[in-house]
Design a protein around this nucleic acid. Structure first.
Lengths: 226, 226
DNA sequence: GGAAATAAATGAACGTCATTCATTTATGGG
DNA sequence: CCCATAAATGAATGACGTTCATTTATTTCC
């Protein structure tokens, strides 16, 4: 029943103080300054000089507000490489930017991972670019969706991982009982690179390498044009 | 303040009614029967025939309760293949059981992805098995942690994806504007397999294949790329 | 064997949230 | 001028996690 505040035929009230764009911008300002826990409907309303209930004339729920933020944040994902660069390079660019964006917005991950895509045109546009990239590289149509979703799953998981404390994998006092793992973690740490960065880099290269073997001529794509 | 009369149900023999094991078991019963949203401290207390505040004599917070559940649930992850099967088979077994467990406990994912590992012996034991598996297969120690974390990130992302509605990737009315993606999704659906299953299978095989090229004889860690 | 210490449970608060609703305010079209 | 209408108000609601002073049962110590 939510009416878009766009139908300006009948009486117009006071000048538009709120509206989706302003609300989303204010929310992003709060997130940037004080993080997601600080994003409450009260704080948001206060930052707009308005009462909390006023927000509900524009957003149906906080969930919807989060969807607006997601759509907004999605602009930072770079899918411009598909159709322009070799598929593996385009995937690297896309996945890296995608992970970076959602590492800064990790609380959105559990929300959007489960959200119908139809509500987010920008997300659909991105998927379209990626799908066209796979198809253009000669992939079998039946594998494309799975390849995209699999890569996205890796990205989401990596974004969550990137928000973990740096010492999350320290066994602490139990280290002696788990020598192989503790040794591996210590060795990784000695490299100076945060484990989340190393893991994302290594995993992404492995995933891309593995995917490339399935491209045209690969196992599942039994019919190739040349 | 209020003087309670004596012979109430309030004052009963205080043998160990609660305790970590019983609380965890009751919580899992609620989750199984009615899902995570139903797991409130009140509901949990009620199911134990106790008042909500009583729980706080045993668990410091709901967060801690969730950690107990995680530790308990972790028993369903099968890391028995490492050191017994070829590394790729052991990884398949591990990753599949790991994902299946957390697909049924998706709300735990954002919690544990960020939780220090030191508090969960069972998780540490699992990591130890996996690390020993990689090392036993001849992997360079400095790559092992990254390989484990990367695989786990893929698992967590896939577990979240597995809880999404089946039609999450339907473009709906916008389908015509995104033909490549919509076509790929339609084709995937025609296969009859849920997209989350197809994506996990394809992604896992790609990831494992990619990782295997980095093992002994592959591009050694100390040299080459990145 | 009795007193004190300890552990466990109670129930009534609290504070924080998201959300609802009846009411008021401002605006512009007929 | 009037009234339909979008927008904003502020008080209230209902979950929820959590705290606290108090009560009671069990354990420990002399």
């Amino acid at each position: 029943m939510a009416m878009a505040p766009q139908a300006r035929r009948a009486g117009r009230p006071r000048s538009a103080v709120l509206g989706r764009a302003r609300i989303t911008a204010a929310a992003r300002r709060i997130i940037e300054a004080r993080g997601y826990p600080a994003l409450t409907m009260s704080a948001l309303a206060r930052s707009l000089g308005v009462s909390p209930s006023a927000l509900y004339n524009h957003a149906a729920s906080k969930q919807q507000l989060l969807q607006w933020i997601q759509e907004d944040v999605m602009a930072g994902v770079d899918s411009s490489g598909f159709g322009r660069l070799p598929l593996d390079d385009a995937l690297r660019l896309w996945a890296t930017s995608y992970r970076d964006v959602f590492a800064r917005h990790a609380p959105l991950v559990p929300v959007i991972a489960v959200l119908p895509v139809a509500g987010s045109p920008r997300t659909l546009r991105m998927y379209e670019d990626v799908a066209a990239g796979f198809l253009g590289a000669g992939w079998a149509e039946e594998d494309v969706a799975a390849a995209i979703i699999a890569t996205e799953s890796f990205i989401f998981g990596s974004a969550l991982d990137a928000t973990a404390p740096l010492d999350i994998f320290d066994a602490g006092e139990h280290a002696a009982r788990f020598p192989a793992f503790s040794g591996a973690v210590a060795r990784q740490r000695a490299s100076g690179m945060p484990s989340a960065e190393a893991a994302f880099g290594l995993g992404l290269e492995a995933l891309i390498a593995g995917l490339m073997t399935r491209g045209p001529g690969g196992p599942a794509a039994s019919r190739s044009s040349s």
